[in-house]
Design a protein around this nucleic acid. Sequence first.
DNA 1: TCAGTAATAAACCTCTTGGTTAATTAACTA
DNA 2: TAGTTAATTAACCAAGAGGTTTATTACTGA
Lengths: 111, 111
Amino acid sequence: MTNDDQLDAAFSALAHPVRRTILARLAKGTAGVNALAEPFDMTLPAISKHIRVLENAGLISRERDAQFRLCKLETAPIQDIAGWAERYRHIWEARFDTMDTLLADMKEDDT
Amino acid sequence: MTNDDQLDAAFSALAHPVRRTILARLAKGTAGVNALAEPFDMTLPAISKHIRVLENAGLISRERDAQFRLCKLETAPIQDIAGWAERYRHIWEARFDTMDTLLADMKEDDT
DNA sequence: TCAGTAATAAACCTCTTGGTTAATTAACTA
DNA sequence: TAGTTAATTAACCAAGAGGTTTATTACTGA
C-alpha cells in the first residue's frame, strides 16, 4: 500500500463521527465490540463494519480474548495525518503574522 | 453546521488523492480550474466536482476574476484536523517512552 | 452437551461518490 | 457580433458506503 493509499484509508475512516467516537473511547483503553457499540443507536453488525474500516485503515488492532475481540488504538495513521497537516502550518502562521501586523498598524493609527 | 459535521466534511474531502494534490498546489498560490486540472488525466467536470467538494468543506475559497475562478487555500479546517490529531499525541508519546524504557532496560541487561 | 453470550457473515436496500459526455453560461477578443 | 476560452450544469452510470434483518460461528459455563 502506498503512502497515498494509507492516507486515503485513514482520512476516509475518520470521516464518520461514529468511528471517531470509537477511537476516542479506545484512547481510554481497549474494549470489546459490545462495549464500543453501547453508546450508539445502531445494530451490532453496523458497528462491526465500522470497526473493520478502522482496522483496515490501521487505526486499531484486534486481539482475541476468549469470546471477546478486544480492540486497541493504533496511533501510526494519526501521526501520519498530524504530519500531513503540519506541512500547511507555515501558511496559517504566516497569515496570522500578517493579521498581527495589521492589528499593530491599526493600533498605531489610534495613537 | 456542528463541529462534528465540519470534521466529517474536512476528513472526507481529504480522503482523495486528487483533492490533496490540488491543495498542495494551492499551497504555492492561487490558481484557476484549468491550471489545477492540468496534472490529471481526467475531464474538467470531474475536477470541477473535486473543487466543489473542497469548497464545501471550507478548504478553499473562490473569487471570480474575469473569466477565471481563482481558487485559494483556506487553512481553518486543516488546523481543526491538526487539533483533532493532537488530542492523541500523548498516547503515542507515552508508548514511545515505554519503548525507550524497554530499550534502556535491555541495555542494562547487556552490561 | 446444551443454553447463553460475543461477534461476524450473508443478503439485501438506498443513497452517495466519482467519473463520463453533451449542453450551457459567461466573459474576453478580433 | 461571431468566435474562443473558462468553467459549470445536466443527465447518466457503475461502484462503494452505511445501514438493516437473518443466519452462523466460536467460545463459556452450568
